[in-house]
Amino acid sequence: MEKTINLTVNGETRSIAVDVNQTLLEVLREDLGLTGTKKGCNQGECGACTVLMDGKPVSSCLVLAVKADGKTVMTIEGVAKDGSLHPIQETFNQKGAIQCGFCTPGMILTTKNLLDKNPNPSLGEIKEAISGNICRCTGYVQIIEAITSLAKEKNARGGV
């Protein structure tokens, strides 16, 4: 069964015909070519497929594409503006928070959501926020350092 949905992806509103049994992850990767969103488990257990739906981080492998009808979705491809890295992306790279990079898109989007709603997270809040995003390479140390330094930077600039 097909259905046409209206989806705003990375600021662009589009009308797409999807199969109702397609997940949002499949539509993003296969139909829209947004392969930056990764599939690590396909069962909601790893966070590699994280996207922001109406601003909130969700595992897109568990979301039916039809459920995103009328919603706003941000994928990793929408984070950098005008070809230059977003401060989160920049800091992740500076601090060594990226190794193989497979968890990175999800990790960055989760971080974005955290800092958007809480510019001054504590260490505990940082660890909690990314606790659904698994990274095998980094042991999280440099990811946590990167987010901590972003929080500090934001504070120094006076909020968001």
């Binding site: 568990l62 989760t110 995003n133």
Partner: peptide, 9 residues
């Protein structure tokens, strides 16, 4: 429940 990515939906 679960993780933050689940609780949002």
């Amino acid at each position: 429940v679960g993780s933050p990515l689940l609780r949002s939906v």
